[in-house]
Design a protein around this nucleic acid. Structure first.
Length: 566
RNA sequence: AGGGGUGUAGCCAAGUGGUAAGGCAGCGGGUUCUGGCUCCGCCAUACGAAGGUUCAAUCCCUUCCACCCCUACCA
């Protein structure tokens, strides 16, 4: 059984207990209930994987329900994007697509029922007055002066609220619970407010809209949800969730369970801040590859498998936590390691003229796309000529110890080709290296030097005559500090990383990439995993997004040295 | 008259009266025509702290400390 092989978590423990006790007939029905007021982010992905994953593992079902009770903030653009994102992640709600707005009439009828039972009343206190009557964390509240209206008056007023006889904000319907409760959520919470907004589904049919606490639990109940999983901040709402359901006889009672929401370092995961980044044009949109949105990760080139794996690895618990972004990177690297063809791209080219290789001649080398298992993905031919491009950072005029790439008089292996020796350095007037002269050891095509000398490094290269121009976009973390949202004095936008996007317009890729298709993912050897952007790529002019760099032992070694000197 | 939660390694996270899983990161080494991958090894005498119960406590009890959430006609 799959559930036995997965790491345990407290929610599975609860469900296992419920099934053993025969609760809900052993059924598991969950739901993912987003409000369509923004794009989904990686934190939502955690919740989606949890809810749909539970349904899958326990042979139950998971509903997609839009919590569309506040038309002031919601929009169809968001419902469409949310459905796209859930599907892209690999989950299927089947026939179970719902909207809280589908239940407005039923929920309204239940509200009338509470009014008739004297459990709800129409209140005319202004928001400011309500705040005063509510009391504080350490002081009980006071009853509203409207709390003792007769049932008849309340029913009449409530029906006229629905009928549109009163202006926005002039009246609310409140549950009559306990103004002295230490749990502020129980101090006669608002059930309905008057709010004339065009609703994306119900149009202008309603001018009163139910509040979250009133509508959410009842929506769960209507759908027969068994386990209503939400984040920790709703823990204090659970008594209210239970109250609203228990007060209505015969209504199914789902169990609300809370878990810790995801936090990721070096980014922000609050809808408010993400919206600010988009509307303030700090990023190109919701799908900017630097955004922690699902759309952003998709555009960056992440696979749904890697996101699901991430959700699995971080687990589910109740302790507040901040996950290291390195965890996510490890997931995508692991996924792409076995899927991506190995090809060559020179990001910042430096010309090398091979003096002992004849001008005008082209030699071809057979190079497997997946060297670790050559038959797996086949191979291509790499053209080799007198003039080649190498990576600028693969040459150093004065190499530090441990640098085993190219330097004057030194040798390196050209990947899949000859051993190359640097014989000359050409500079411009400013002293910048603009070209190298070199020779190649013709005996080293398919093996190491016969004399047994050791070649330290291998670098990638491209025949200048055959290389294709390409645009490469290098992405880095969006913020420069681990917790941009939690600084007391500074606005999170002050921590935006100015180098989060570096565009290389003059990179070169190997000829085989002429056929690269939008959406392809490859490994540029020694650099990282890249994605052919489906939006900005044009035929013959591909745009590659760096999804994630390869682990870099050399960079790490240097970084350590650098910090040791301080 | 406050209430509700949470503390296990640098970061996640299992475990739960019987002597601390796993992953990420890190460190050391093997291998290597990617400084990648992979392989081998190391990485908490210790579970927020202090007491108590017990043959035995991360787990049960008591007290304390730290952090998070709740005072929207948002969800």
């Amino acid at each position: 059984m799959e559930e036995a092989t997965r790491p345990g978590n407290f929610i599975r423990t609860i469900i296992d207990g419920d099934r053993q006790a025969g609760k809900n007939g052993g059924q598991v029905v969950t739901r993912f209930p987003p409000e369509p007021n923004g794009y989904l982010h990686i934190g939502h992905a955690k919740s989606i994987c949890l809810n749909f994953g539970l349904a899958r593992d326990y042979a139950g079902r998971c509903h997609l329900r839009f919590d569309d009770t506040n038309p002031a903030a919601e929009d169809v653009e968001y419902v469409d994007s949310i459905m796209d994102d859930v599907r892209w992640l690999g989950f299927d709600w089947g026939q179970h697509l719902y909207y809280a707005s589908d239940y407005f009439e039923q929920i309204y009828q239940w509200a009338e029922q509470l009014v008739k039972e004297g459990r709800a009343f129409v209140c005319e206190l202004t928001p400011e007055q309500q705040r005063e009557y509510r009391g504080t964390l350490v002081k009980p509240g006071q009853n509203s002066p409207f709390r003792d209206r007769t049932v008849e008056e309340n029913l009449d007023l409530f029906r006229r609220m629905r009928a549109g006889e009163f202006p926005d904000g002039s009246k609310v319907l409140r549950a009559k619970i306990d103004m002295a409760s230490p749990n502020l959520n129980l101090r006669d919470p608002i059930m309905y407010r008057i709010k004339r907004f065009h609703h994306h589904r119900t149009g202008d049919q309603w001018c009163i809209y139910p509040m979250y606490d009133w509508a959410h639990g009842l929506s769960d109940a209507i759908e027969g949800i068994t386990h209503s999983i939400c984040t920790l901040e709703f823990e204090a709402h659970r008594p209210l969730y239970d109250w609203f359901i228990d007060v209505l006889p015969g209504v199914h009672h789902p169990q609300q369970i809370e878990f810790a929401r995801l936090n990721l370092d070096y980014t922000v995961l609050s809808k408010r801040m993400l919206i600010e980044l988009v509307t303030g044009k700090y990023v190109s949109g919701w799908d900017d590859p630097r955004m922690p949105t699902i759309a952003g990760f998709r555009r960056r080139g992440y696979t749904p498998e890697s996101i699901r794996d991430f959700a699995e690895r971080i687990g589910v618990a109740k302790a507040d936590s901040v996950v290291d972004t390195g965890m996510l990177e490890a997931c995508i690297r692991e996924d792409l390691n076995t899927k991506a063809k190995r090809v060559a791209c020179v990001h910042e080219p430096l010309k090398v003229v091979i003096e002992n290789f004849p001008e005008g001649e082209t030699e071809e080398f057979e190079a497997p796309f997946f060297p670790d298992d050559p038959p797996k993905m086949g191979s291509r031919k790499l053209p080799f000529t007198r003039e080649i491009w190498i990576e600028r950072e693969d040459f150093m005029e004065v190499p530090p110890k441990g640098f085993f790439r190219l330097a004057p008089g030194k040798e390196v292996r050209l990947r899949c080709a000859y051993v190359l020796k640097c014989t000359g350095v050409i500079k411009d007037d400013a002293g910048n290296v603009v070209e190298l002269r070199a020779t190649v050891d013709l005996e080293t095509k398919s093996g190491n030097p016969a004399d047994g000398r050791k070649i330290g490094g291998t670098i990638h290269w491209l025949s200048a005559a055959h290389a294709l121009k390409a645009e490469v976009r290098l992405y880095d973390r969006l913020f420069t500090v681990p917790a941009p949202a939690s600084d007391k004095e500074k606005n999170f936008k002050e921590f935006l990383n100015p180098k989060s996007l570096v565009v290389l317009k003059d990179a070169y890729v190997e000829p085989s990439l002429a056929g690269a298709q939008p959406g392809d993912r490859v490994q540029f050897e020694r650099k990282g995993y890249y994605y052919v952007d489906p939006i900005d790529s044009k035929p013959g002019a591909p745009v590659f997004h760096r999804i994630v760099p390869l682990r870099d032992g050399w960079a790490k070694q240097n970084k350590d040295k650098g910090s040791a000197k301080k």
